[in-house]
């Protein structure tokens, strides 16, 4: 890989712009896609690779190309700068998520409690508006406080977030669903919320709960079969 290509690739990644590094095999000629100068078939294949987020070798016009997808990091928005969020954030970072913790309570959402994690002290509805969750975003609410969690869940349900999870017991969750119904969300939308949040690993401690949450996020992202949540 020459310096020019490497610099352009690093620049695209720093700008969080999705790109594909195309390498002709076995010779090694390389180019970044999309590129208006490139053949349309190559650009189309690159677009498909970015959409599926699956790098691979493709034969295009008789030439083998390895198309390496460089998508921006997945995002995780955690509402509630609580103890479980402290445990969840490093797991999620390790799994490749750019984590933002949202909590207007500044004593909770402090740099000291969340080193190396982006923090927003906005109210969840404003923060969610600014983040505009997309299909590469997971949203988890952890506060138990309806006035913080509900607006975040309401916005998440109106987005394409691939995962929505809400901490709380079955009873808390049933009450939460009732409130969200009153905001106009239908059953199909509400079924998107994973509650109680996390895989059932009988987690007790904050790190164990953090682990169960990130495990469920990964499972949903990778289309693993998951048992339905037991209704309240």
């Amino acid at each position: 890989m020459n310096q020019e290509i490497l610099a352009a690739l690093e620049q695209a990644r720093a700008a969080k712009r999705p790109v594909v590094l195309a390498t002709a095999l076995p010779g090694g000629e390389q180019r970044l896609l999309p590129d208006p100068q490139a053949p349309a078939a190559l650009n189309e294949a690159a677009e498909a690779v970015l959409q599926s987020d699956e790098s691979g070798t493709h034969k295009i016009d008789g030439q083998d190309w390895f198309l390496h997808a460089y998508n921006p990091p997945l995002r995780l928005i955690v509402v509630g700068a609580v103890h479980i969020a402290q445990a969840l954030a490093p797991f999620a970072t390790q799994c490749g998520f750019a984590v933002t913790v949202v909590d207007p309570r500044r004593s909770f959402a402090s740099d000291e409690r969340f080193p190396n994690v982006a923090i927003s002290n906005e109210w969840p509805d404003e923060a969610m508006e600014a983040f505009a969750p997309d299909s590469r975003t997971a949203v988890v609410t952890l506060t138990h406080d309806p006035k913080l969690d509900d607006p975040a869940l309401d916005r998440a349900l109106k987005s394409n977030a691939f995962y929505i999870g809400a901490l709380g017991s079955r009873r808390t969750h049933a009450a939460r669903l009732k409130r969200l119904r009153e905001l106009g969300h239908g059953e199909e939308a509400l079924a998107r919320i994973r509650g109680p949040v996390g895989l059932n690993i009988e987690a007790v401690t904050a790190p164990e709960i953090g682990l169960s949450v990130i495990a469920e996020i990964v499972a949903v992202r990778r289309n693993a079969p998951l048992p339905p949540k037991t209704p309240a």
Binding site: L9, P73, T93, Q94, G96, A98, P115
Partner: peptide, 11 residues
């Protein structure tokens, strides 16, 4: 701070 997704960011 470490780059995000640092574990897999070999490049």
């Amino acid at each position: 701070s470490q780059p995000l997704g640092e574990v897999e960011d070999v490049l």
